[in-house]
Design a protein around this nucleic acid. Sequence first.
DNA 1: ATGCTGGCTGAGAGCGCTCTCACAAGGAGA
DNA 2: TCTCCTTGTGAGAGCGCTCTCAGCCAGCAT
Lengths: 327, 327
Amino acid sequence: MSRPTLEKVAARAGVSRATVSRVVNGSTTVAEHIRVAVQRAVEELGYVPNQAARSLVTQRADSIALVFSEPPVRVFSDDPTFAGIIRGVSAEADAADKQVVLMLAGSTRGHERVERYTTSGHVDGVIVASMHGADPLPAALARRGIPVVCSGRPLTGSSLPYVDIDNVGGAESAVRRLLEAGRRRIATVAGPPDMVAGIDRLTGYRNALRDSGRRSIIAIGDFTRDSGYEGMTQLLDDDPGLDAVFAASDMMALGALRALRKAGRRVPDDVAVIGYDDVPAAPYADPPLTTIRQPTMRMGRELVRLLLNPGESSVILPTELVVRESA
Amino acid sequence: MSRPTLEKVAARAGVSRATVSRVVNGSTTVAEHIRVAVQRAVEELGYVPNQAARSLVTQRADSIALVFSEPPVRVFSDDPTFAGIIRGVSAEADAADKQVVLMLAGSTRGHERVERYTTSGHVDGVIVASMHGADPLPAALARRGIPVVCSGRPLTGSSLPYVDIDNVGGAESAVRRLLEAGRRRIATVAGPPDMVAGIDRLTGYRNALRDSGRRSIIAIGDFTRDSGYEGMTQLLDDDPGLDAVFAASDMMALGALRALRKAGRRVPDDVAVIGYDDVPAAPYADPPLTTIRQPTMRMGRELVRLLLNPGESSVILPTELVVRESA
DNA sequence: ATGCTGGCTGAGAGCGCTCTCACAAGGAGA
DNA sequence: TCTCCTTGTGAGAGCGCTCTCAGCCAGCAT
C-alpha cells in the first residue's frame, strides 16, 4: 500500500536504481529496449518520484513561491491585478516546469512563516508582490541567499530586481486625455502613500498638470470604493468647480461616480472621470468607465523570467488607455 | 555561505546531532543548560531545518494543498466564496502549523500536474474546491492514498468527506421571502447544471415553488454577469408578467438588474430580485441587492478540520438571508 | 558494596533519491 | 591479436534529518 520506490521499479524492470533514475529524468544514454521496460514498470507500479528525497540531493525544489504581503481580503477582491499576475506566473512557471506555491503573508506572523518556509528549502525562489511601505521581507530573504524578485519597485531602495508597470506614465496619459478634452480643473483621488502604485500615480498626475501649468487638487484614498466616495465628496467640497477627476483605482472611481451622482453632477458632462486598473466591473459602471489597463498577465510572466534568469535587469511595462464613456 | 546543517549547530553547541534535533523539535527531555546553549547556536548560525531531509524521514510534509479545479479567472473574480474559503483554510491551517499550497488546476494539464505534485509527497492532504461535473480528481487522489476532502458535495457519488453549504436551503429561503412578500410569478436564473451549487440552488427554488403550488419559470446561466443579463432578458420574453426573480449568483443578479432597467421595469416595485453570494458589490448595486450570504470562511476552517481529523463526517453549513432593497 | 532504576545523551542506521565513478562489452584501428 | 575508445550499466556514497537503542551517570534501595 505504500508508495513504490525507485528500488521497487528497478527490481521489477530487472535493472539498477541508477538506470531507472536515468529513464525517469530523461537521460539519453539508455538503450531503447531498457527504457521501454522501465517505463512499463513505472506505469504498472504507478511510480511517482519522492520529491523530498530528490530535493535533498539536488538542493532544488523545482517550485517557486508567490507571496502576497497583503491581507487575503484585498488580494481576492475585485482587483484584477492580482488575478493577472497569478495567471501570468502560473503560465510561465508551467512552461519552465516549476510549481507555484501561493502564500499570503498578511500578518507579522505571516511574514515569519513565509521566511521560515522559503528558507527551509521548499522553493528555489520567491516573488514578492503587493508590498506596503518599506517591506523588509524581500531584503531579508535575499540576505539569506534566496533569489527574490519584486512585483512593483521596492520602496526600500534596495537593488533587488523587480518588474513594475509604468504607473507614472499611465497616470500621465490619463490626465493628458482630460487636458486634451478641454478640462480645466482636474482633481485626483490618490492611492495610499505607502504603496508604490499610490505614490507613482500621484507623481504622474502632478507631472501632467505641472506641464500644463494647472493647479493640483488632491484627496487621499486607499484604493477602496468607500475611500473613493469619501475622497470625491471631499474634493467637491474643496473645489465645487472641478470638471474632471482622476482616480488612482477603478474601485475608487466607482465610489467617486456614486458621490458625483449624489451631488447631482452628470458624468461626463459636468465632471469627467478616469480610473485605473480596468476591473471587470468597469465596463458595467454607469457610465462605463474610462480607465488605464495594465498588462498584468505579462507582468506575471516577466516576474518568473527574471527569477529564473538572474542576470537580466528589472523591467517596466507600459499601460494602455481604455476609452469608454466616463471621459 | 551555504545553509548551516544540524551537524554545524551541534558542533558549535558542543553536543550531538540528536540533541540539537531534540531541542529544535521541542523535546522535553533535554537539560535546561544544554537547551539554552543549543538555542544560542541555532540563533547565531541562523539555522533553519531542511524540510526535504525532514520530510524524507518523517514521511510528512506539514503542508496541505488547496486546489481549485477552475480557470484562475473565475477564482479571482468578484466571487467572495473563494476568498472566504482561502482565508478560512489559511487561518485553520495556521493554527495547526501547516502550510497552505494553493494550486490552480484549470486545464487538463493542470489536473495532471496537481496529481503529480500531491502524490510526490509534497503535501499531507488535499482540499479540492470548485469542481465541475463529476470531477475525477478527488477520487483519483484518494485512490493513491492521499487524504482528500471536497469543498462542495462531489457529484461523483463517491463517499469522500466534504463540506458544503446548504444551497438547497438557501435558495428555498430566498424564494420563500419572495412568496411571503406576495410575489406570484417567481422566475429564476439558474446556475450551470454541471456544478453542485447550480443544481442545488435550482432544487431549492423548485422545492419552495412546489410547496406553494406555483409554476416555475427558468433560464439557465453560468454565474456570470452577462449570463444573468441574457437569462433575464429571455425570462422577460417568456413571461412578461413575472414579478420576481431569484438569481443563483449575485453577479447574475447584477446582470438581471441591468436587463430589468433596460426593459423599463422598476426594482423592487415591478420585479423583486434576490441574488446569492453577497458579493462586495451587492450593497452598492442599484438598488442594493437582497441576497443569501454563506459562511465561506467557516467553510474553509471546516475543510481543514475535516482533512486533519479523518474520522469526522461531512458537514453542511447554513446560510443567511441578507435583506436590502431589491426584495 | 551491589544492584536497579530513571533521566539524558550519543552513535548509527536509514529515509529515497542523484550522481560520480568504475567497469563490462563491443567495435575500430594498429 | 591486442589495445583503445565508446557506449551503456551498476555499485556506492552521501544529501540532512529523525528516531531507536544502547550507554552513561547519578541516586536510591537492598
